[in-house]
Design a binder for these strands. Sequence first.
DNA 1: CTATAATAGTTTCATTCGTAACTAATTGCA
DNA 2: TGCAATTAGTTACGAATGAAACTATTATAG
Lengths: 147, 147
Amino acid sequence: MSKSDLLLEEFLPYRLSYLSNIMGQGLAQLYTNKFGIAHTEWRVMAVLGISSGLSAALVADKTAMDKVAVSRAINNMIDSGLISRSFADDDKRRSELSLSALGKQTYEKIVPLVQAYEKDVLGALSDKEQKELDALLSKLTDYAKEL
Amino acid sequence: MSKSDLLLEEFLPYRLSYLSNIMGQGLAQLYTNKFGIAHTEWRVMAVLGISSGLSAALVADKTAMDKVAVSRAINNMIDSGLISRSFADDDKRRSELSLSALGKQTYEKIVPLVQAYEKDVLGALSDKEQKELDALLSKLTDYAKEL
DNA sequence: CTATAATAGTTTCATTCGTAACTAATTGCA
DNA sequence: TGCAATTAGTTACGAATGAAACTATTATAG
C-alpha cells in the first residue's frame, strides 16, 4: 500500500455518509413504514409543523431541498391530505402551505418517535460528548459550506 | 410551538445528512468534473486501489454498496478501461477485480485531491477536536448499527 | 451421482432525483 | 402604459437507484 492510499473506513466523508445512511434508514422505518411518508415529505412536514403559511421556496430553504423536490413532496402531501395550500393575496404565484388537521395529527405522532430514535442513538454518548459533537458538527458544517 | 416540536437544524440525522451532502458535492467536483468518475465508481476505485483481486461481493461489503450498484459501477469502469476483471479458477462465478494501469494512474491522481479536501475541511478543527470527532463518530456508528 | 438449494453476478422494471425547459404572475423601467 | 426581466412553481426528460426476477455456477442432501 503506497503512501498515497486512502482507507475508506477512515475517510471522513465516507464515515459521515455511512452514519447518515444508517440513521436515515432507522428513521425511515418510523415514518415510511407506519405512515407511508417519504423522506422528502417528512422534511417538509417537519418544517410546516413549526411554521405555517410558508411558501414552497421558503420550505426549500429550510429543508435544504431543491424546489423541484419540494414541489413534488408538497403535491404528494396535498393528494394524501397532509397539507393544505392557498395562494398569497398579494402574489398569486406564491403558495401558502400548512399542515392539514390530518397532517398535524400525523406530525404529532411522528415527532416523538423520531426524537426517541435520536435520543436512542445519542445514548452512545455521554452528555459532555453530545455537547462536543454538537459543537464539532457546527464548526465543520459552517466551514465546509464556505469551501 | 408545542413541546413536541422538532427543529430540523438541531436534529442530528438532518445535520449529518446536510454535512455529508456538502462534502459529497465537494468531492464530486474533484473526481466527477475532472475524471468523469461517478460517486459509486469512486468508492469502488478506492477499495480496489488498496486491495487487488477482490470479488464484486467483497467490494460491495467494503463500500457499503449493494451488489447491483457495484455490478453497474464495475461494468462501467471496465468499459472505460479503469478496471480489469478475471474469474476465479476454483469458482467461475466469482470475479477477481483490479484497477487497470489507467485505473491505478487515475486513482493516484484522485487520492491526493480528496485527501487535500478532507484536510481542508478538518482545518476547521484543532488536532484535539479532530481526535474527538473521530472517537464520537466511531461510537455513534457502532451503536447506531446495532439499533 | 443426481436433484435441490445456495451463491455470484446481471438484467429488468418501476421509482426517485436533478437539470433544464416551461408556464404563469409580477416587477421594473423606458 | 407596455414590454423585457424576474420570480414561483411545475413539467419533461435523462440518469441514478433499489427490489425482484433471472442466469450461470457451485455446494449439498438423499
